[in-house]
Design a protein around this nucleic acid. Structure first.
Lengths: 247, 247
DNA sequence: CGACTCTTTGATCCTGATCAACACCGGTGG
DNA sequence: CCACCGGTGTTGATCAGGATCAAAGAGTCG
């Protein structure tokens, strides 16, 4: 398992404040921005834009103070922990509109890192403002709870004891479903992360990831190209992973 | 893997309303009750007592409407999902004071079951009252967020790809630490769940659980008896599981 | 006591990890 | 332009951790 990326954190000056979500392609499907609902417009007034980060650059690092929640605006990112032995673990991949850093609230600092996969922009929700907003607007409060609940709920899926093939199929189907929810093409998955990242996340060796994808390709479920893959038979794929999906 | 328990849900009439947490031994260490903090006294006024449930009895079942959050009052419980193939998965064990059912908020119904391990009593926090309370008292709101954040944070530990021995050691150490936090004896762990439950939760066969415990016993780390085990060398145990513990 | 379940221990097997070699691509410099 | 290089991905061969199979103790409850 290779060591941590050594690219430098981008200077804070690269962060640019913007006024809200107007013009963002994902605004109406964005979890972080409240799916464009009027009652949650407050959320979209406190957002700041961060980026552009390049592949491998850090949004934040472990042991840095928790000041804000984030979402991906465009591109993709991964959350990674490093344990006491230096081994890293990919906890999640983030698609546009998905809120993260929720786990840092209880600690007051980040104990994991978020790293850009390819060129990626982020939205930043300063936690002070958010807290303020939540005390005055029950809708915002409710939305946050809802989001956290969903995250608790979803994480449980990835823990299960299922064969490698099922985990991989479920992973691809889940990515596809999340893209569909965002209004993106569900039959095409860009995979800017390495095979090692996918394997780490699914508790598989990179060789196994490669072999499983080859198997799905040979079965006619997917077509693989350099930047990702096309889903040719989503039904079949979903069926392989069915035990892991949505209980 | 055996099928689901077949014991019947206890009649609703067994539920008894009480006035708050006065007299509860865990009140000052109870997460659900706000650790006895004055600002959160509202929490302790809306609580109802549920129980007593006997071993194997259900607190709630999948596909039942979500009406309340719960905590264990005395005893122990497990949260279990059943997948589409009928295989069950033990998601968590709950000690007194620990809040659960947080994952049902986003769905509006429970998609897993909570089952008593030995004779167990529960505390019930009606969600309507809780929501009310949270809108008027920012402290309550904050406390809930904190609790959910912690849950998101902790769940990540159980997903990792570590050898069986480390997972088992980390599991025992975690249980011990949680007991210490509640003011219970940390050097003695009652284990009212079956080896199969432990194995399921840790993605291990029951035979492996048995073998690992025997190994720890032979190494002088623990003493095993019928109702649980005594920790003789907590340091050694923690060291075996160190990679999984607290990042 | 006897039927039953849960746990423990031993023997064998299999999935997926590890080791090893090669192909592929993107960049760099001559 | 091509030779070279390091990183990433693919494929094959071997290995091992833990599962599965099998059977015997140990409680528990009728």
């Amino acid at each position: 398992m290779p060591a941590i990326h050594t690219l430098e954190t981008p200077p804070a000056t690269r962060r640019a404040h913007t006024v809200g979500c107007t013009g963002c392609a994902h605004a109406s499907a964005c979890q972080a921005g409240g799916y464009g609902k009027d009652e949650l417009s407050g959320l979209r007034r406190i957002v700041e834009k961060v980026g552009l980060l390049r592949d491998g650059e850090y949004l934040y690092r472990p042991r840095t103070p928790f000041r804000a929640l984030y979402a991906v605006q465009s591109g993709m990112a991964k959350t990674v922990t490093v344990d006491s032995a230096g081994r890293e673990q990919v906890l999640a991949f983030h698609l546009p509109g998905e809120l993260f850093a929720l786990d840092a609230i209880c600690l007051g600092y980040h104990d994991n890192a978020v790293i850009a996969l390819g060129r990626t922009q982020f939205c930043r929700f300063p936690f002070d403002s958010l807290r303020c907003l939540a005390t005055t607007q029950p809708d915002v409060q409710w939305h946050l709870m809802h989001t956290m609940s969903r995250q608790i709920h979803q994480q449980r899926l990835s823990g299960g004891d299922y064969p490698a093939e099922e985990r991989m199929a479920a992973f691809l189907t889940d990515l596809s479903d999340r893209r569909a929810m965002l209004g993106l093409r569900a039959d095409h998955l860009p995979l800017p992360m390495s095979r090692a990242d996918i394997g780490n996340h699914l508790r598989l060796a990179t060789e196994t990831v490669s072999r499983l994808l080859a198997r799905f390709r040979d079965a006619g479920f997917i077509r693989i190209d350099r930047q990702g893959l096309d889903i040719l038979d989503g039904r079949a794929l979903r069926d392989v992973g069915r035990h892991l999906l949505q209980g």
